[in-house]
C-alpha cells in the first residue's frame, strides 16, 4: 500500500508538471501527437479485372477501420497485394505479402503487411502487421477469384 501511494504521488506530480509545462508554453502551432490504433479488418472481395497474374479486387471491409477495400493482387509463387482502404475521412494504402498454403484450388496465404501512406486524416499513416486470406482460383467456380482477406496490426496516423 505505501508503495502504491508513493507511485500515485509521483504520477500526480508528473501530471501536474506536464500540465504546468503545457500551460506555460507559448501559444504556437504544434504538430498533433500521432494517434495509434490496433487494427483488425476483414474484407470480402470480388474480381473487378484480371490480366495475366494480376488481379484487381474490390469489396467492403469491416472492423476497426470499416470502408471499401481496393486490392491489386499479384498471384505467383508469392502473393503480393497492394491495397487501399477508403475509410471515413481518408484512405490508407500499403502492401501485403504472403506465402500460399492449403488447397491449390482455393489456397490460403499468410504473411506480413506494411502501411506506407494515406490521405485525408490518415495522410501520415504508417504501420505494420499480419496479412491473411484465401482466394478461389477456379475460373469455373461461381466464386471464382473471390477473396477473404484479414489484416491486423498497429497503425499510426
Amino acid at each position: 500500500m505505501p508503495l502504491r501511494t508513493a507511485a500515485a504521488t509521483v504520477i500526480a506530480i508528473l501530471a501536474l508538471g506536464i500540465g504546468a509545462a503545457i500551460t506555460s508554453a507559448p501559444a504556437a502551432p504544434r504538430a498533433r501527437p500521432a494517434l495509434m490504433l490496433t487494427v483488425t479488418d476483414t474484407a470480402h472481395l470480388k474480381l473487378v479485372h484480371k490480366h495475366g497474374e494480376y488481379i484487381n479486387e474490390e469489396g467492403p471491409a469491416t472492423g476497426t477501420l470499416p470502408g471499401r477495400v481496393k486490392l491489386s493482387l499479384e498471384i505467383g509463387p508469392l502473393v503480393v497485394a497492394h491495397f487501399t482502404i477508403e475509410a471515413s475521412g481518408g484512405s490508407i494504402s500499403g502492401t501485403g505479402t504472403g506465402k500460399p498454403k492449403g488447397r491449390s484450388e482455393e489456397p490460403s496465404f499468410g504473411g506480413t503487411m506494411t502501411v506506407s501512406h494515406g490521405t485525408g486524416r490518415y495522410k501520415h499513416a504508417h504501420g505494420h502487421g499480419g496479412f491473411y486470406g484465401t482466394i478461389n482460383l477456379n475460373p469455373r467456380s461461381p466464386r471464382s477469384y473471390s477473396m477473404a482477406v484479414q489484416t491486423n496490426g498497429h497503425l499510426s496516423y
Binding site: 497474374e53 488481379i55 498471384i75 505467383g76 500460399p100 491449390s104 482460383l137 475460373p139 477469384y145
Partner: peptide, 15 residues
C-alpha cells in the same frame, strides 16, 4: 516472365 499467370491459369486445381 512476370506477366504470365501460371498460378491463375486454372491449371492444377487438384493435386
Amino acid at each position: 516472365p512476370k506477366q504470365v499467370g501460371i498460378v491463375t491459369s486454372g491449371l492444377g486445381l487438384a493435386t
